[in-house]
Design a protein around this nucleic acid. Structure first.
Lengths: 238, 238
DNA sequence: TTAAATGCTTGAGCTAGATCAACGTGGCTT
DNA sequence: AAGCCACGTTGATCTAGCTCAAGCATTTAA
C-alpha cells in the first residue's frame, strides 16, 4: 500500500493500464503520464477497422489495451502478406518515419490508447527511458519477424499451421506465461493463409489433419483446445 | 576546414571510418570516441568466418567497415534460413540480450571494428543519441525483414530471384545511392537458395532464365551486370 | 600434372501445394 | 421462414518447384 502512496498522481485512465507495467508507459513518471494523458484518447474499435493505412502519413500512435492487431503488407497486384500480430500492451506505429508501407488492422475488437505523433516525440526527447522501451519492442519484433522468415522459407504447410497455433497459444492470453491450451483464433482462414504464405484450402486441410490426429479440438471454427502440446511441437518441426 | 579544427581529437582509427558518419559512432563526440577507441579492435576476417554464433553468449559487438555479413537461423534438423544481410556501416549484434538465435558470418572478406559488450552498454547509458542510432537501425532491419517476409510468403521463384538481385544492387556499393548496375554476388548459390527458401537448382535455373532474356549478364558465376532494370523490376513483381 | 573436392548448370520425373469446383453451415436481412 | 452471403470444408486435378542424377568448370591438394 505504501508503494501506491502517489497513486493519486497517476491519471485515472493509466492506473489499471497494462501499458504502464509491461508497455512503453512504464518508462514515464507520474508527471509525464499526466502530461501525456492530456493528449491521449481511448477508443474501442471493431474487428476489421484499419488503424494505420500503408503509405499514408501517420498522424498518431497507439498502445493496445486489449485485443489483437494484424500488420500486413500489400503488393501492387493484390497479394497480401501478414507480417506480424500485435497484442496488449504493444505499441502500434512506426516511430521516426512519416509513413510506413505496413498497415495495421484490428483483428478482433481492440481497445487502444491513442496519442498524437508530436506527443510521443516530445516525450522521447525528455525521457531516454521511453526510447529504450520502444527500442526493446522493435528488437523483439525483429526477433519475431526473423523467426517467421524461418517458418515462411523453410517449413512445410503442416509445420506452418502448427507453428502458427503455437505462436497464438503463446500470445493470446497476456496473463498466462508460456502456452495456454485454450485459445480463440483471432483470424479467419484467409488471414491465416496470408500469414503462412498458403491458400485457404491448404490451411483448412492441415487443421482437420491435426484435429483427426487428436492433437487439438476445434469448436465453431475459431475455438481451439490443444490436447497435446508435445505433438503440436513435433508437428511444427521443433 | 574550420569544421575539422578538432580533427586531432578524433582517434586516428575513426577519422576515415564510415561508421562515424552514417553508422552508430556518429552519435558520439570526440571525447567519447577516444574512450570507446581505447577498447576497440580492428580485424579483417576471411569469408566464412563466424562472427556471432547462435545461442552462444555474446561477448561483444562490432561495426562493419567493409564487406558483407550474412545473418542466419538454423533448425534442429539442419534446415537453414538466411534472415538478413548487413553492409557497412551496419552494427552487428543483438543489444540488450545475452545471446540470440541468429548467427552472423562473414559472406565476403569483412573488416570490422569490435568492442566489448560493456563498452557499448556504458556508452549507451551516457549518450541517448547512441541508443537512438541503434534504435533506428533496428527499425530499418525490421522494415527489411518484413519486406522479405512478403517475398518469402507470396512471390514465385522467378520473382524471388529478381527481388534478390535488386536488393543486392541497392546495397553492395554503399557509395552509390540507388541501384548500381554492376555488382558481385557475395553468396554462393546454396546461400541464395537459403535466403529465398528455394533449392540451388531453382535459383540456377532462374538466373539462366534472366540471362537468356537479356535482363542481365553473368561472368564467373558471381559478377552480374544488370542490362535493364525496368525488366528486372517487372520480373520481381513490382 | 593429375586427382579430388567444391560449386554451378541442366535434364527428367515426382510431389506438395495450388487451382478449380462443389457443397455445407451459420448469421443476417427481409 | 426464406433467402442470401460470407466463411469453411472436401474432392479432383494441375503445376511450380523439389528431388535425383549426370556432367562441366574452377579451385585446392598432392
Amino acid at each position: 500500500m505504501r508503494l501506491d502512496i502517489h497513486n493519486s498522481d497517476i491519471p485515472l485512465l493509466c492506473r489499471a493500464c497494462e501499458a504502464r507495467h509491461k508497455g512503453i508507459c512504464g518508462a514515464l513518471d507520474p508527471k509525464q503520464l499526466q502530461q501525456l494523458g492530456r493528449q491521449t484518447g481511448r477508443r474501442e474499435v471493431a474487428a476489421g477497422t484499419e488503424l494505420v493505412a500503408a503509405g499514408v502519413q501517420t498522424d498518431g500512435y497507439a498502445n493496445i489495451l486489449s485485443g489483437i492487431v494484424k500488420l500486413s503488407k500489400l503488393m501492387a497486384d493484390g497479394r497480401q502478406q501478414i507480417v506480424g500480430l500485435q497484442f496488449a500492451p504493444d505499441f502500434v506505429g512506426r516511430p521516426f518515419a512519416a509513413s510506413s508501407d505496413v498497415s495495421a488492422e484490428a483483428a478482433s475488437t481492440v481497445r487502444i490508447c491513442t496519442f498524437p505523433r508530436s506527443a510521443l516525440e516530445d516525450m522521447v526527447r525528455q525521457s531516454p527511458g521511453l526510447e529504450h522501451r520502444l527500442h526493446e519492442q522493435a528488437l523483439r519484433e525483429l526477433d519475431d519477424a526473423r523467426e517467421w522468415m524461418m517458418t515462411l522459407g523453410q517449413k512445410s504447410a503442416a509445420e506452418k499451421v502448427a507453428t502458427f497455433l503455437l505462436l497464438l497459444s503463446r500470445h493470446v492470453d497476456p496473463l498466462v506465461e508460456g502456452y495456454s491450451d485454450h485459445l480463440e483464433i483471432p483470424l479467419k482462414r484467409s488471414d491465416i493463409a496470408d500469414f503462412l504464405g498458403l491458400t485457404v484450402e491448404t490451411v483448412s486441410r492441415n487443421l482437420t489433419q491435426l484435429r483427426k490426429a487428436g492433437v487439438l479440438t476445434i469448436q465453431k471454427n475459431r475455438l481451439v483446445t490443444v490436447n497435446d502440446f508435445s505433438l503440436l511441437e513435433t508437428a511444427a518441426g521443433l
